[in-house]
Deep mutational scan, measured.
Amino acid sequence: EVYKVKIKIERVLPNGEKVEEEITIEVEGMSEEELLALARELAAEPGVRIKEIEIEKLPP
């Protein structure tokens, strides 16, 4: 199964400015739980906050 994972994050820059970013990846052969863990890892940097995680199962 192939999933499209869209992660919206908010990053706080050293000057205090907040910037929103969106990361989209396609992943194959992982469960939804593994995808959530991967998304959290991607956003685990200091000053980064996850705003939204969207997981979509793509048709075969």
Rank of each mutant, 00 (worst) to 15 (best):
E1Y: 15
E1N: 09
E1T: 13
E1P: 09
E1H: 12
V2N: 09
V2P: 03
V2Q: 04
V2K: 14
V2T: 09
V2F: 13
Y3I: 04
Y3A: 02
Y3K: 01
Y3H: 02
Y3T: 02
Y3L: 04
K4F: 05
K4S: 04
K4A: 05
K4W: 07
K4G: 02
V5E: 00
V5L: 15
V5A: 10
V5R: 00
V5W: 08
K6T: 05
K6I: 12
K6Y: 11
K6Q: 03
K6H: 05
K6E: 01
I7Q: 00
I7P: 00
I7T: 01
I7N: 00
K8S: 08
K8G: 02
I9C: 02
I9E: 00
I9F: 09
I9W: 13
I9Y: 12
E10G: 01
E10D: 05
E10T: 04
E10A: 03
E10N: 02
R11D: 00
R11W: 12
R11Q: 01
V12D: 08
L13H: 05
L13T: 08
L13C: 05
L13K: 09
P14N: 09
P14G: 09
N15K: 02
N15I: 01
N15P: 01
N15Q: 03
N15A: 03
G16Y: 02
G16M: 04
G16Q: 03
E17C: 13
E17N: 11
K18M: 15
K18R: 12
K18D: 02
V19P: 01
V19K: 09
V19M: 08
E20F: 05
E20H: 09
E20Y: 14
E20D: 12
E20C: 06
E21T: 06
E21Q: 13
E21K: 03
E21N: 06
E21A: 08
E22V: 10
E22Y: 10
E22I: 12
E22G: 02
E22H: 09
I23P: 00
I23E: 01
T24C: 06
T24A: 10
T24E: 09
T24R: 03
I25E: 01
I25V: 07
E26R: 10
E26Q: 11
E26L: 11
E26M: 10
E26Y: 08
E26F: 11
V27W: 09
V27P: 01
V27C: 06
V27Q: 05
E28S: 07
E28F: 11
E28T: 13
G29T: 07
G29W: 08
M30D: 04
M30N: 11
M30T: 04
S31V: 09
S31P: 12
E32Q: 11
E32G: 06
E32S: 11
E32I: 13
E33M: 14
E33Y: 14
E34T: 14
L35S: 08
L35Y: 05
L35D: 00
L35M: 13
L35C: 06
L35T: 12
L36V: 09
L36D: 04
L36P: 02
L36E: 04
A37M: 10
A37L: 11
A37Y: 14
A37N: 10
L38R: 12
L38K: 06
L38F: 15
L38W: 15
A39S: 06
A39W: 13
A39V: 14
A39G: 04
R40H: 03
R40G: 04
R40E: 03
R40A: 04
R40Y: 14
E41N: 14
L42F: 08
L42P: 01
L42R: 10
L42M: 13
L42I: 06
L42H: 10
A43E: 06
A43K: 04
A43H: 06
A43M: 13
A43G: 09
A44I: 10
A44K: 14
A44D: 05
A44S: 12
E45G: 12
E45P: 05
E45F: 14
G47F: 04
G47D: 08
G47S: 07
G47Y: 04
G47L: 03
V48Q: 03
R49D: 07
R49W: 12
R49K: 11
R49S: 04
R49P: 01
I50W: 02
I50E: 00
I50N: 00
I50F: 03
I50K: 00
K51Q: 05
K51Y: 12
K51M: 14
E52L: 10
E52A: 11
E52C: 06
E52V: 11
E52T: 14
E52G: 09
E52K: 08
E52M: 10
E52Q: 11
I53V: 07
I53H: 00
I53L: 04
I53Q: 01
E54I: 15
E54H: 14
E54K: 09
E54P: 00
I55G: 01
I55V: 06
I55L: 09
I55Q: 01
E56Q: 14
E56R: 11
E56M: 15
E56P: 02
E56I: 14
E56W: 12
K57D: 02
K57Q: 09
K57P: 05
L58K: 09
P59N: 12
P59I: 15
P59D: 04
P60S: 12
P60Y: 01
P60E: 07
P60A: 08
